[in-house]
Design a protein around this nucleic acid. Structure first.
Lengths: 216, 216
DNA sequence: GTCTATAGGGGGATAGAC
DNA sequence: GTCTATCCCCCTATAGAC
């Protein structure tokens, strides 16, 4: 079956190992060992390590960004006369990525880890593949936020969108740090509770008046 | 002079290259080329690459965390009867790290980049060196936040501290992405404005009532 | 403390048989 | 499409002269 083809097994193993050890630290030899394929197969199907990296990202990035755009379209259809509530916008934007974190069935956890890594990456090639489609999505959400939070300046909205993305990335990394942070977070929160907590955090942060914090 | 010693030059170059390309992708050979020293010197002074990594982190992590604790002590001395305002707590916590980002004089930018990378790292060794002292600092701030934001549950406060750290990391990475994000942020904000924007974002996020977002 | 030389291993990539 | 065998490079680390 197609899901167990050589290409698929290589992509799955590469995604897992890239996420665990980083791209540079992952050798093609460790990938072929994990995927139980031959070293030559990786060059036959992908040509080079760089091309393999692009394929690993390309396979999943689209599904996250497409889900974000679908969610946004639904909200726009629902709120025709009034601006979409900011909390709904953040829930629509954040859920597809964070939910991937707890989808161990199809290796979502590995990809979540890889995305989190990529967000801290400054390499131009990785940045390019990661942000190419994300930029379009961000501009759409920012345009909608212009209607939902008109009292906040454009540059401030973009700044706060960056803060929100940062909070999201740390949330995505959370399941991967159980060994270390188990005693830092005493109470176990469910996935839904974590997402709602994140949505609230980003929403009030996006909405706040610039001078609000001085009184807090 | 001591600042130009072989060890210092190795540490400076290693910090710069680790931040730019990642630890695994940085060879000792590229470090000695940048530092203009001999390959054997690196082993003579540090023993191995792993030990060098520890030294690179150890040299600067302390100064950030010590500044955070100094700032906290000052606030505690200033607010003896009333709780310290949340905004002051975040400013005290966030400024030492973010300010490092724009201290190109002594390579602070390189280390900021490295720290940002390390925050997305799941490798146990890196996590250990990064969070060993940070944990103590976090617990002190969380303890103070317990007095300043008593209406928020303990687990929610810790969650929101994680979100804030994520926002901080993305802020630290900001100066490194000028090539890509120049057209995403139209208006240039000063370092002080960025920090204040981040402080406001984290403060209102930490303070918010759980049900607040539903109305936004 | 600093150098050269080299050991010893692992890396990506390719040629050519099947 | 998949295999074996191999090329050639770069890597970390060390030995030993100065």
């Amino acid at each position: 079956m197609a899901a167990d083809s050589t290409q698929q097994r290589i992509l799955d193993s590469a995604e897992k190992l890239f996420g665990e050890h980083g791209i540079a630290a992952t050798s093609l030899r460790s990938i072929i060992a994990d995927a139980d394929v031959n070293i030559a197969a990786i060059h036959y199907h992908f040509g080079s390590k760089d091309e393999l990296v692009k394929e690993v990202f390309g396979r999943r990035i689209n599904q996250v960004n497409e889900a974000r755009l679908r969610n946004l379209a639904q909200l726009r259809a629902k709120f025709t006369d009034t601006p979409v509530p900011v909390s709904d916008l953040f829930r629509a934007f954040l859920t597809p990525a964070v939910a991937l974190t707890q989808d161990p069935a199809r290796g979502g956890l590995s990809f979540a880890r890889l995305v989190a890594r990529a967000h801290a990456e400054t390499d131009a090639a990785v940045q390019s593949v990661l942000f190419h489609e994300l930029k379009t999505v961000l501009e759409q959400y920012l345009s909608e936020l212009g209607r939902s939070a008109p009292h906040v300046s454009e540059s401030e909205r973009r700044m706060r969108m960056l803060f929100s993305a940062g909070a999201m990335v740390q949330t995505m990394l959370l399941p991967l740090r159980q060994d270390f942070l188990n005693h830092f977070f005493d109470a176990k929160m469910s996935q839904e509770e974590i997402i709602e907590s994140l949505v609230t955090f980003c929403t009030v942060g996006m909405q706040s008046e610039p001078s609000t914090a001085e009184r807090l």
